[in-house]
Nucleic acid binder design. Structure first.
Lengths: 109, 109
DNA sequence: CCTTACCGTAAGTCATTGCTTACGCTTGGC
DNA sequence: GCCAAGCGTAAGCAATGACTTACGGTAAGG
């Protein structure tokens, strides 16, 4: 699956993964987000662009601000891909993985 | 967690992830593995080095051959890290994640 | 309007990466 | 002892990536 490429690549970078984690706690504007990191604000913007292209975050304009939050659907897609990967790599976990997580919810899009 | 960095980076590369998937089906020697790809055998060796450093595969010498297989422990570690990541990012899945696998870590900040 | 806050993009730089070919070290068979 | 098979590593190279500063564009406020 080509989407898993961009998603894994996005999470592979430590700074980008930290941004993702912060957005997991609560939605934030770009400026507020950048204030929590040592890298510049444009750098954060570029990371957000990659995360958005990977469907790991989504954004919503609010006045002059741009509020980013995690994207549950993209995350669910990655989870499914990885569960499948583990299942094939580790047959022992196949049964557990198939019964482990509930049906993905279709709210919010 | 610094180990997640190398693990995610290792799986982010398509060729390297394909190698990992092949080893998931069955253990293989480097030569046999390389025969299934368009890249050269040294390239496969380098990918295996990265996968091993990330604790995603392990190897065992057999005569002149070197047999590689997936490393269940490293994989389990990555799974735990990711489950935690999803739980914090998607509170809806938190309860499900905590009840799905044997012995989830409850502490962790 | 004019200004200010907020943000994305462009352009350039430096380090990292994924690949190649070339080489060197073991192991096992003859 | 020799030779060939099997791998890992070194060296070099083109491409990608993560940053920076500089600039442009839009929305709110006086």
């Amino acid at each position: 699956m080509p989407e898993a490429d961009s998603q894994l690549a996005a999470l592979a970078d430590p700074t980008r993964r930290a941004i993702f984690e912060r957005l997991g706690r609560r939605p934030m504007s770009v400026g507020e987000l950048a204030a929590g990191f040592t890298v510049s604000r444009p750098a954060v913007s570029q990371h957000l662009k990659a995360l958005k292209a990977a469907r790991l975050v989504e954004h919503q304009k609010s006045g002059t601000q741009n509020i980013y939050r995690v994207d549950p659907e993209g995350i669910a897609a990655l989870r499914r891909y990885l569960d499948n990967l583990w299942s094939r790599a580790l047959p022992d976990l196949k049964a557990a993985a198939e019964s482990s997580y509930p049906r993905p919810r279709k709210d919010r899009k």
